[in-house]
């Protein structure tokens, strides 16, 4: 049964990666990033349940905190991006071109 959860987590991670690569809207990319983080969380919890070890769940706690902090800062950056370019298309910021 753990296998099932691991597979689910892997697939969820894959969906998240796919979303980041494919979508151009920066907010949707952020959401897909959250998907990836959640997939990792699921993996950690599954393993913690398998080994009856609490450390996995503690790590998940920390991951959640970091994810929260990261979302906050990321959103601030996106706000700045929007203020400068008036759009959330991520391809607009091509100042490093050539």
């Amino acid at each position: 049964m753990i296998t099932f959860y691991l597979i689910i987590a892997a697939l969820l991670f894959g969906i998240g990666v796919l979303g980041i690569l494919v979508r151009r809207n920066v907010l949707v990319m952020l959401m897909c990033l959250e998907l990836m983080l959640n997939a990792v969380n699921l993996t950690l919890v599954a393993f913690s349940r398998l080994h009856a070890n609490l450390e996995g769940q503690i790590f998940v706690l920390f991951v959640m905190c970091v994810a929260a902090a990261e979302v906050v800062v990321g959103l601030a950056i996106i706000v700045n991006l929007f203020r400068n370019f008036y759009t959330v298309d991520v391809d607009i910021a091509n100042g490093l071109k050539n």
């Binding site: 905190c65 970091v66 929260a68 902090a69 906050v72 601030a76 950056i77 706000v79 700045n80 203020r83």
Partner: peptide
């Protein structure tokens, strides 16, 4: 870390 994130976000988003 969370404190830093808060400060950073406030600074970045300041208009």
């Amino acid at each position: 870390l969370i404190l830093v994130a808060i400060v950073g976000a406030v600074m970045l988003a300041h208009e």
